[in-house]
Each structure stands twice: as structure tokens, then as C-alpha cells.
Amino acid sequence: MIPVLELQNLSVDLPLGGFLTRGGLPILQDVTLSVGRGESVALVGESGSGKTTLARAVMGLQAISGGAVRFDGKAVAGRDGFARLRRDAAMMFQDATASLSPRLTVGYLVTEAFRIHRQPLPDPARTARELLATVGLPPAIAHRYPHELSGGQARRVGVARALALRPRLVIADEPTAGLDVSVQAEVLNLMADLRRDMGLAYLIITHNLAVVRHVADRIVVLYLGRVVEEGPTAEVFAAPAHPYTASLIAAEPKPDPRKRRADLAIRGEVPSILRRPKGCEFHTRCPLARDVCRLTAPDLRPTTSGRLARCHFADQHQE
């Protein structure tokens, strides 16, 4: 079956505005990933890992410097290609309130996609009501302005708007950032229901591992713009193949005072993309780094358990 979304060796460079210097600073390097029909894939990494850049590159909001984006098996290129992609794929932004045009009512905003793509919209008020009902909001919300919504409501409006043209893929950038625990649970349940009812595929970008465990079938871990591990969520959480993934899982605060960590899982900070470490880029923070890691960069290779990891010793950690 052809995946909904495929990224093939996608690279994004930040242009360096020099007069003589050409090229740029690599933000994303050779990222290959796919999202199948109805599948939910999580993209995980710290800030600076390039995950938001990746989402923007997919939607054509960020120029790519290499590789290809394929949607439904067809390469996306040019204005028409992205126009079609933007109809069949939708994006949810991290700051839901800020992503709603402030002077327009919710009713207009959720139906705007019909107007943009010149789709028939015989009864806008009714369509708005139906979309709001899908995400569990009362019809009266249609007359509100974005600044009058609570964080959870704005998030739901963002979902409703993303669903307007029945997309096949939703890219969600930190879908629960800034939400209270109880509201976060409501939003995650809603996303799960929609996936079941509408056959949506998700690409979820987040650093919240608890969320990932709940909603993702597969997880892709990014470090400094490269994929360092990829595999089914349950397997990755049970036995991470890359030490970075293991550190991220260990670093997550557990809501159980009896399971406090004694020591630190990971030290230091993500290095600046201006000074990428030589060899394996994670060796500066890796608790298991050896000499070879400082010299030779590992490739993204299949492990014995059939996952992908960018580590010289991937198979050894798992044992």
C-alpha cells in the first residue's frame, strides 16, 4: 500500500546571507520517513532537533534544499502540487490561539478552507455547526473571536478547521502544549476518535513522551536534524536502540514518587548547529560513548530487532 506521506532524503538548509558564501547551515539532513494510511507517527526530539522545520517543509512553508516530499505516491512540487497537498493535508499549530486570524469569527475560520479551495459551501453556518459538533464544541462558539476562547477550545477549533476538507493527513505540532492535564486528555481522546472514524493519518510533533506513547503507532527520533532511531512505539519504549532515545525516556518525570530517579539520565545540552560534533553527533552527551564514536559517524542501520538506529552499538544496548 502506498503511504500517504513519504519524505525521501529531505534536507533543509538555513540560508547564510553572505555575499560570497553559498549554501547554508543544515537544519535537516537526509530525513526519510513515511506515514501510512490511517497511521499515527510521532516525531520526537528536543528544541533544535528540526522537528518544526520538518513540518513546515512538508507543507511547503519552508524551502527544501534536497530530497523530495511525496504525497499519495506523487512527488509534490510547484505551486499546484503544494496547493493540492494543502487541501488534502492539514496542519495544527503549537500555539492554537495564535494560529487563528484574530479579527474573524470561529464560524468563518472553520469554513475558510472551503473558500480557499473553492469547494461548494451552500450553508456556511450549518457546515460550521457540524464541524464544531465533530470536535465537541457547542454551536454558539461560531460567533466567538479567537481571543475569547480558552486554550482547550482554541485547540478544538484548530482541529475542526483542520478537518474541514476531510484531509487524509493531519500534521500536529505539539497538539497538547500548554494544556492542563484534564484538557490534554480530552484533546488526545478526540484525536483518537477522529482517526478511528475518519481514517486520518497523523504526523505528531512533540517532545512529550507520555503523549507519544498514547497516540503513536510508530516513533521517529530526531537529533540535530537527523533521524537517530525509528520503530514501533511499544518496542522503542520497551527497549530503545539508541542511547539518546533511552535518555529521553529516562528523563521524563514520572508521576510516582516511589519511582524517583537517583541519577541523571542525560547531561549537557543539544550542541549548536553551528558546531556539530565530529563522529557521532550524540557522543558529547552519550553515557556510553567510546573512542570510535568520537571519530566515525554511524549510519542509520537496521538493528537485529528490525528497527532503525544510528548508533555503532545499537544491537548491544538492547541485550
Binding site: 513546515r56 507543507m59 512553508l61 503544494f82 496547493a83 494543502r86 487541501r87 492539514a90 496542519m91 499549530f93 503549537q94 500555539d95 495564535a98 494560529s99 487563528l100 486570524s101 484574530p102 479579527r103 474573524l104 475558510e112 478552507a113 480557499i116 479551495h117 478547521r161
Partner: peptide, 26 residues
């Protein structure tokens, strides 16, 4: 560079719509 302009672009809105419907009133 605001999020909502980015969101409109991600929905496929053309420059004319972005300028007159989303930027102008603001």
C-alpha cells in the same frame, strides 16, 4: 511571520486573500 498567517498559508490561501482578509484588518 505570525502563526495565523503561516496557518493560512498552510491551508493553501493565496497572497491576495492573506493580504486583504488577514493582514489588512489587523
Amino acid at each position: 511571520g505570525a502563526d495565523y498567517i503561516l496557518a493560512e498559508r498552510a491551508m493553501g490561501a493565496r497572497p491576495g486573500r492573506i493580504i486583504f482578509r488577514h493582514l489588512l484588518p489587523n
